[in-house]
Nucleic acid binder design. Structure first.
Lengths: 292, 292
DNA sequence: ATAAAATGGTAAGATAGTCTTATCATCAGG
DNA sequence: CCTGATGATAAGACTATCTTACCATTTTAT
């Protein structure tokens, strides 16, 4: 029905007009002159109307004069599209949505994002944080390209690449009787007032599980939790990364018996590939965090 | 440098997305399924990034999801251009600038324009009129595609196609002594007060040239001229077409000795082709006026 | 559970498109 | 008149694109 215009012959026509001749245009396009002659002739009979006068040298017909500006327009749009796509592929443009649990978001992401921004100045990043369940939701709903989190249950539709282990320990005030200990056995905590938090379920299914029974409080908010600890109301367990190192009066003692760890890794939708920008982020994450 | 995107593979990609599969798309495009597979694979490695997930059936990658709307956009623009150009070639759009001497403009053009408008409802027409010299100028300056006029001197840069002969005759009031005569010999006009007008130079170089000597008036404006004739101030010579047939008191007597004619024809720039719309007009003009 | 049908990918060969080299006809300027 | 431009043409090499035939995998239906 309507003729299919190929990009290249349009480029030839425009080049002939700009350079003022077939020879000059051919030189600029690194083609032979007959290549242009033939391609343009083919285009002309596809359109059913000549673009150049047969007499005179490469002067446009009125019809050609009508067409050339439109050809230019289409070429411009083509080139813009081509450039846009290439810049995506080359990671000079695009954006990444990434999610992380709060501990990772505050302890690991700042350095990662700084490195990423330096390596890919054109890429935009959005960082979402929330607890592990929320993060998992973001990933499985596709609202996020990637996540740094720990995975609770295996999900066929998500793929998880472990990156590091994060040991759980006891957190207490620095004047607590246990403060200063190198390691702790879970039994030494019996009788302590344990404040549970979002990460406490890491103890489930371990020898230390009975501790959860003796706990009267559950606090999900980190600020509230540290305030409680600061006030000496009790102790809690936290993975190392989640421990607020900068807090003046709190200390962290790793649990040695049993050793409890969470596994931090990169979570992404399985059987779906990443955008080039997200791929760049994933590569950076592996490069920085997989050394352990 | 930047990759050349061919239109067709983009169309394939969009069709696969729209039809939800390679087979369905191939069916719609009247191609075999491997044709799409290969073309799209080629496009993907030209871009350096897959558009479709290799697993799963024809699901887009995030990169593909980025590209497809832009592909659609370019295809839309391509198709619009293609349609525009075809409608020009097929004379469903465009415009013609045409010039004519006043006699032609008023006597021939109305019917021509009506026929043209009926045959090509999409084409716009501008009609310019003026004396033969002005019309020639419009054509040679390219301000007009075509002209219906008579040509005084040959010009290498203009091409003139004769269409009809327009006999010169004497115009006088219907109570004039010569009124009612079938033909006239120039000598019968001796002693008459001759009013010259823009067409009087047709007599130059003919036997009747001496008449020009006995003429005291020159009037270029047709309205003024007819008013003078109407007032019985004198007689004039005019080509038949320029004679105001509708005037109640004027009559036209052809000159038979000598026969003097002007040649009306189609004037256009030589060695320049016409726009499709102008070509359509030229064709109509030949069809309607070349019968004589 | 197994057979049937549909998915897309791959290979080989035919066809069509596009390029290059070599050559030609025409025209402008010295 | 000749030289050096112009663009057009012809023949052949090369490349792109399509089709047929086939494969592996997944989905659907029995």
């Amino acid at each position: 029905m309507l003729p299919e215009l190929k990009i290249q012959p349009l480029r030839y026509v425009v080049a002939v007009v700009d350079e003022g001749g077939f020879h000059a245009a051919a030189r600029r396009l690194h083609r032979s002159q007959p290549a242009l002659s033939m391609a343009i002739k083919e285009l002309e009979q596809r359109l059913g109307e000549p673009l150049f006068e047969k007499a005179g040298k490469s002067r446009l017909t009125p019809f050609g004069a009508y067409c050339v500006p439109r050809f230019r327009e289409l070429l411009t749009q083509h080139d813009r599209l081509s450039r846009d796509i290439v810049s995506r592929v080359e990671r000079r443009a695009g954006h990444v949505d990434i999610a992380a649990v709060p501990s990772v978001a505050s302890r690991l992401m700042p350095a990662l994002l700084a490195d990423f921004a330096a390596a890919h100045p054109g890429l935009h990043i959005s960082l979402h944080d929330g607890n592990a369940d929320f993060v998992r939701e973001l990933v499985s709903r596709g609202e996020v390209d990637l996540a740094l989190t720990s995975l609770w249950q295996h999900d066929e539709r998500l793929s998880f690449a472990p990156l590091m282990h994060d040991a759980v320990g006891v957190v207490c005030r620095d004047d607590h009787r246990l403060a200063g200990r190198e390691t702790l056995n879970w039994q030494e905590l019996q009788g302590e007032r344990l404040i549970r938090n979002g990460t406490s379920r890491l103890l489930e299914g371990t020898e230390a599980a009975p501790l959860l029974e003796q706990s009267a409080f559950f606090i999900s908010n980190m600020i509230s939790l540290t305030a409680m600890l600061d006030a000496g109301i009790g102790v809690t367990t936290l993975p190392r990364l989640a421990f607020p190192e900068e807090h003046r009066h709190l200390c962290f003692i790793p649990l040695s018996e049993p050793r409890v760890e969470r596994e931090i890794g990169l979570l992404q939708p399985a059987r779906r590939s990443l955008s080039p920008a997200a791929q760049a982020m994933a590569e950076l994450i592996f490069e920085r965090l997989l050394k352990s």
